[in-house]
Design a protein around this nucleic acid. Sequence first.
DNA 1: TAATAATCGAGACGGTACGTCGTGTCTTGCT
DNA 2: AGCAAGACACGACGTACCGTCTCGATTATTA
Lengths: 203, 203, 203, 203
Amino acid sequence: MTTEPANPRYRSERSHKAILDAALKLCLEQGFARTSVDAIAKEAGVGKQTIYRWWPSKAAVLVEAIDRQSAPSIEFPDTGDIYADLRDQMVAVAKYFQTTQSSTYREVIGAAQSDPAAAQAILDTLVNPRVQGCRRRLERAQQQGQIRTDAVLDDVVELIYAPLYYRLLLGARPNTPSQVEDILNLVFDGIRPQTPNPPSTDD
Amino acid sequence: MTTEPANPRYRSERSHKAILDAALKLCLEQGFARTSVDAIAKEAGVGKQTIYRWWPSKAAVLVEAIDRQSAPSIEFPDTGDIYADLRDQMVAVAKYFQTTQSSTYREVIGAAQSDPAAAQAILDTLVNPRVQGCRRRLERAQQQGQIRTDAVLDDVVELIYAPLYYRLLLGARPNTPSQVEDILNLVFDGIRPQTPNPPSTDD
Amino acid sequence: MTTEPANPRYRSERSHKAILDAALKLCLEQGFARTSVDAIAKEAGVGKQTIYRWWPSKAAVLVEAIDRQSAPSIEFPDTGDIYADLRDQMVAVAKYFQTTQSSTYREVIGAAQSDPAAAQAILDTLVNPRVQGCRRRLERAQQQGQIRTDAVLDDVVELIYAPLYYRLLLGARPNTPSQVEDILNLVFDGIRPQTPNPPSTDD
Amino acid sequence: MTTEPANPRYRSERSHKAILDAALKLCLEQGFARTSVDAIAKEAGVGKQTIYRWWPSKAAVLVEAIDRQSAPSIEFPDTGDIYADLRDQMVAVAKYFQTTQSSTYREVIGAAQSDPAAAQAILDTLVNPRVQGCRRRLERAQQQGQIRTDAVLDDVVELIYAPLYYRLLLGARPNTPSQVEDILNLVFDGIRPQTPNPPSTDD
DNA sequence: TAATAATCGAGACGGTACGTCGTGTCTTGCT
DNA sequence: AGCAAGACACGACGTACCGTCTCGATTATTA
């Protein structure tokens, strides 16, 4: 795990799990900001020192907890239809971003703005693995001719995920499935007017 | 600012400005998280009460301070070329997001993840005015036929701004001018392969 | 009060008193060592900071509290009979040293062994005023010819008080009134054998 | 030492000594209060458990360590002149009480105010053996007519030692050889005015 | 011009949480 | 099998801030 020290000489597996569970539970109940390390320790039946021994901060605990919780759903689908796969994945993310649970993720990203180590942990543990999954799926699609060959895929990944995070973190508009689809259509077809030159075009 | 009262009488004007200046200065020097209300009050030569009289939180102070600082650059350019205008504006934003000053903005957005009132202030004061400026510019471009008529402009605005915020807040990659241009090209042309020949589907 | 800072710009008299009362109460109930600053603060309905603002340590709080409690009994009696006065005072001290309350005093002296500031406060606040009272009484007695003129009174004071503290702090034997009287007789008459016959010294 | 088990087998002898040495060394360097059991264990190259196996507390360790250190000087001199012997012994104690090493002893007595077991160990191990030595010397002197026959020797011992401890633990005045002698003269001759002439009473 | 009222600086207040240290017990794995 | 090394639950430490509440001094208005 990213946020662990190099040398877990030995750690109590029971305590480890109890800490992650307690952290998630309390954040769900009262929010990340209102959840103190003391409270996590008490809820987990653990000494505060044990938390500080294995994680550098409250945020780091929750990065690992969130990761463990969401690890199963990490794989990107591949049905052969890149549009459908992207849509399904984005809708799944959008739905998660609408849940109460994701508030914890949101607040952890917020805390990471003042905590470079936490920011790095988020990237390494939560964001990049999923981004890479998306990228690999895009690569296959590009090889199959479903995506322009000149598209820089790292940019494409960002273009797809960025609106979801924008809405999550700025809160201007909620992440709804229909808007996800609107965004995806724009990403596929662009905003340039349909080429006025005679030989053209889709709808 | 949203939370200001009707009658800032007496000595208030001087204090008001001193608070905003002190807040920006301290955040620049040591970051938002390490800047306490006490410290702002002391730096501004002001009683703590005076700060709480006008703003509900430290974040709210900085929303106003950042707004005052960036107010001049709020207008969206209109040279007639929507691509060039978007590129110039995005590059300007990207450059700002690379500065040290923007760290304060970044941290304030972070704090807002646990502070709905601050989140609303950010939207109302900092984000929405600029978003609306962008939207109005896009409307003119759409009327001039530079953008597809079926594009939903609110979505387009998000698609343009989201990657900038994504990089600001997730920190995966820096906001460089060249990447801004790559993104903009994707937004304009989409990722779907060119289909010059009318009858087509891939696979 | 000795242990207060020079500049009590203003302090809440209510809190001040509540802290001293709470400290004495908790020490009486569970002993000085088992009484934490947190507990005193909670019992007094006071913030911990308020304690640390006015006293450098838990021991300093209790020095002041004990002083306030015992201030009334500070005066040394003067009936004209120095022996009787010393006996009465010593017996009073011995009785106090046998009470549960004095355990707090005892433990505070114990803590002062590792805390020079507390040691000084004990001397200045609790010990020296009483020692001076005793000394002044001895001076009057010496002038009245009830005490040898060549006796160094500072030493006499110590000789009188020391056995009381010795028993208090070493705990070899309890401070009983009868032993007090034995000691006092020794102090008055010395241990040298009576030498009524003019020519005498033992080898 | 009181708390030692019956069978210190295996590697224990080396560890036992290392613990006592480490404890004394650390207390000398940084004081008893700032010396933790962990630190002693580390310094001695010993597991913490090994310390707790043999002693009930840090104070108990130091009682034994101090005892071992001062055991050689336990015997009371007997030159035949009780005054000279007492003076020599008291001066020796006074000198020791002025050394840095005695700070450890002082602090251990301090800690014992909140630790009855330690208090008992101090009495049994350090104080009573020396007190008994003094008492036995006084007995001989009394039999030789150098001390009043009606003097209760247990009280006399206390009267002699108490001022030394009073100064050690209260710290009002330092333990100097000359003051020791003043005290001793008072103990021998008392404070009552000389009444050499048969017919006499004070005022 | 003096008296009165308001506004503010300074900072004390009751609290909560922090991250560290020390305690005495328990666990692991080396020797 | 015995021990060092140190993880563990626990509890206290002293500090930093929070947001509220005095307290006086200074200012502005009214008498």
